[in-house]
């Protein structure tokens, strides 16, 4: 089963917003040898009772099925949705990108940022911090370009995702 080609899947997991729940999810992935490409988590409910975890994972379809089933049987898990299977959905990621340099490089960094609709959120005479958001691909591309104009460091949120249309998962 594990010899089938790997697929990238984005999972939304709604869980009790309680201590230890994230450790349970992450531990399940490591204990059973599943991959985590990215993971984000935040409280998303009015009463702070529910957190939404977005996991990007990869594996052959039977392994993805197993991941879903294993997550689903954890007691504090309300719901697991495979957005990749679900259908059209939006995936976004945000990055803060620090670039240092002077002269032409500094001008070029600003110009590229403009093309990517990246916003400077901090500036000094020798550096910028850009905020860029979009698909992971776009963020990757922006970071690659920034290497040529003085990239210093990057902080990324990891993917958050939501289904398109009027319905909630």
């Amino acid at each position: 089963m594990k010899h089938l080609p790997s697929e990238r899947h984005t999972l939304s997991i709604l869980v009790d917003n309680e201590a230890g729940v994230l450790a349970r999810i992450v531990g399940l992935f490591s204990a059973r040898g599943y991959n985590i490409e990215s993971l984000t988590v935040a409280d998303v409910s009015d009463d702070h009772a529910v957190s939404r975890i977005t996991v990007v994972t990869n594996g052959p379809p039977p392994v993805i099925d197993q991941i879903m089933a294993q997550l689903d049987r954890l007691v504090p898990v309300h719901k697991v949705v495979d957005l990749t299977d679900w259908g059209p959905h939006v995936e976004r990621e945000m990055a803060l990108v620090k670039v240092a340099g002077t002269g032409d490089k500094r001008v070029e960094a600003l110009r590229l940022a403009d093309i990517f609709r990246a916003r400077p959120v901090d500036t000094s005479t020798a550096s910028f911090v850009f905020e860029v958001s979009g698909s992971s691909e776009k963020v990757n591309q922006f970071i690659t370009l920034m290497r040529e104009v003085g990239l210093v460091e990057v902080a990324r949120t990891g993917v958050v995702a939501i289904a398109r249309g009027a319905e909630a998962v």
Binding site: M1, P62, D65, Q66, A69, Q70, D72, R73
Partner: peptide, 8 residues
């Protein structure tokens, strides 16, 4: 247990 299906 659903996770028993198709595990191996």
């Amino acid at each position: 247990d659903r996770s028993s299906f198709n595990k191996t």
